[in-house]
Amino acid sequence: MTPRFQFQLRLVPERGALLRALALVERRGFPVDHVESGPSPCGRHLDVRLAGTEAPPRPPEVLARQLRRLVEVTSVVTGEEVDHPSRLEVRS
């Protein structure tokens, strides 16, 4: 089964931050399957799960580094969801 990559972001709660992060994921060629966001103690969290139907165009670690460059992004955790959402292998 194709693993589904997941990114957990922490954002400074600035206007436009969500749009900028999501646009980057799509623009870099990673199809988004599921998005969840809301306030968090550190500002705002954004969880992005990529579609598992096709292999990502480049290593997801590269995308994680590109996300970390965004001014509003304070942290990025990547994980690989193998066959069940609860089995998330986290790599920071």
């Binding site: 206007r15 436009g16 749009l19 900028r20 646009a23 980057l24 965004l70």
Partner: peptide
């Protein structure tokens, strides 16, 4: 302009 330029800027602001 904020939306149009997301892919070509290092960062952007709309000052409110």
């Amino acid at each position: 302009v904020f939306g149009m330029t997301l892919g070509i800027v290092k960062h952007s602001y709309v000052v409110r």
